[in-house]
Design a protein around this nucleic acid. Structure first.
Length: 463
RNA sequence: GUCCCCAUCGUCUAGCCUGGCCUAGGACAUCGGCCUUUCAAGCCGGCAACGGGGGUUCGAAUCCCCCUGGGGACGCCA
């Protein structure tokens, strides 16, 4: 049974990079019929915050990655880690180190400055006496020579010389365990078989392998996925926009689009661009994951989002649009309007937020006029057009497109104008702006009463 | 500084493992055109890449080496 996990630390929001790592774990697990575990790595008491945990859980849920197990919290497992540390200590595979953090920091600084590698010099490794009253950390005894290598599912064989590795701290002065230690214990105890994570962890892998061996636990397979970079090629950060996945939700992105986009970032399946979730589960595989870092491209995400806006069932989009309208303070009293509005706007909007902005005027007669549009199209010279339209419209017996078209064409002909010249003033009167769905559609959706009211209001505005 | 990783259009990528089908394919963006009541959407077309140098081979984007460039890691953070 394949088991994967996503193990974020709640020291920040769930960002794009984390979400992608989670997605690869999720997809791989689902692809092979395995289990996807969620674990919160909150051993850093200082920086961990509940609000971040909430953000992570909500983000994963929104994207549609339901975990099968967890969330486990490391905070609740401290005793387990301590027992393991004691076990290694008793077996002579770890030792107490009394060096002060300040002193080590100074040594590191000097080493770096002199161009040496800033590794711990193992001062306390062979200490015989037990200094009972002095604070200490527990360090793992790393082999002095030899090498460690592993077969990465994405990159192939990776080898490190042991001399590059130093004796890492596994238990701090305050009796709390460190990352490289807890991660091994948890992954082993939780039966994780496949560790898929960012390639910033490649360097940690040999240390972790050594700990697996010391603890005599079964070794999982590793797959290191490249990081996502910003436009400037640097690591993705706040500077590049959204810091939380949930901001994308609030900006009107669809989880379907984001999942699709994230999956295609660093992974491909021939020339296919559009993948529904089930499709991803069927086709995703580690062997198609690329090795080089990719750059987050908002334009492509927008395109995909637009695509899903156009292809998802109308009712589905309508429901989501309604909450975005509410966010703008618009109560949808006439639900029946929602569907035709979506049908007319889905080709024009890239996001739900944008769609809500474009849809607002459909739901209230009390909408604002775009200043430029008003100045240009609601003037003394266009007033006759509005008045004539009002009359013709009132005498309209049927309400279909042909009848409407006849009015506009007659008006254009009589006035020696182009169709667009008579339509634009009407459009501004009805929508408050020069950009909208087709004028016939607008009229039909608004209905007789509302159209009349809006035209009258516009005429009054001019007078 | 040391170690590790990476390298195809501006971007995401296919092709690389198992050399010839590659005059390097698709998508986004961009530019032109068509359609048209505005704006989109849609359709058609254009521009655009194998980082450099050595090998190996009849033949290299594909295999090997070096260089360069980029990224990551070197914590009592995760």
């Amino acid at each position: 049974m394949i088991k994967t996990r996503f193990a974020p630390s709640p020291t920040g929001n769930l960002h794009i990079g984390g979400a992608r790592t989670a997605l690869f774990n999720y997809l791989y697990a689902k692809h092979v019929g395995g289990v996807f575990v969620l674990r919160i790595e909150d051993t850093d008491i200082e920086r961990s915050k509940d609000e971040y945990t909430r953000d992570i859980l909500e983000g994963l849920t929104w994207l549609g990655m339901q975990w099968d197990e967890g969330p486990h919290f490391q905070k609740e497992r401290m005793d387990i880690y301590r027992e393991h540390a004691m076990r290694l200590l008793n077996e002579g595979k770890a030792y107490k180190c009394y060096c002060s953090a300040e002193m080590l920091e100074e040594k590191r600084r000097v080493a770096l400055k002199e161009g040496r590698k800033p590794n711990y010099d193992r001062t306390c490794r062979n200490l015989k006496e037990d200094r009972k009253d002095q604070p200490f950390v527990i360090r793992f005894k790393s082999p002095v020579d030899g090498e460690v290598s592993f077969e990465d599912r994405i990159r192939g064989k990776i080898t490190f010389k042991c001399e590059e590795l130093d004796d890492l701290v596994i238990l701090r002065t305050d009796n709390t365990p460190t990352y490289n230690f807890t991660v091994v214990i948890d992954d082993a105890l939780m039966g994780i078989t496949s560790i898929i994570r960012g390639d910033d962890h490649i360097n940690n892998t040999p240390r972790q392998i050594l700990i697996y061996e010391a603890l005599n636990y079964r070794m999982p397979e590793f797959a290191h996925v490249p990081l996502i970079h910003g436009k400037d090629k640097g690591r993705l950060s706040k500077r590049h926009g959204a810091t939380s996945l949930l901001e994308y939700r609030n900006d009107g992105f669809l989880p379907e689009a984001l999942m699709n986009y994230l999956a295609r970032l660093g992974w491909a399946y021939g020339d296919q661009e559009v993948f529904a979730k089930q499709d991803l589960i069927e086709k995703f595989d580690l062997k198609n994951v690329g090795k080089s870092p990719s750059i987050f491209d908002m334009d492509k995400l927008l395109w995909l989002n637009g695509h899903y806006l156009k292809t998802l069932p109308e009712v589905e989009v309508a429901t989501r649009l309604e909450s975005f309208l509410e966010n703008r303070g618009i109560k949808v009293t006439d639900r029946a309007k929602l569907i035709p509005v979506v049908i007319n706007l889905r080709d024009r909007a890239k996001t739900l937020k944008e769609m809500a902005e474009m849809a607002a005027f459909f739901f209230t007669d009390d909408f604002p006029y775009d200043e430029n549009a008003k100045n240009k199209f609601l003037t003394a010279s266009t007033k006759p057009i509005l008045e004539r339209f009002l009359n013709e419209f009132a005498s309209l017996s049927k309400f279909d497109e042909n009848e409407q078209r006849r009015i506009f064409e007659t008006m254009a002909q009589d006035g020696g104008k182009k169709l667009v010249e008579v339509i634009q003033p009407i459009r501004v009167a009805l929508c408050g702006r020069t950009v909208s769905p087709g004028i016939f559609e607008v009229v039909s959706i608004l209905g007789r009463e509302s159209v009349t009211k809006r035209i009258q209001k516009a005429i009054a505005l001019i007078a």
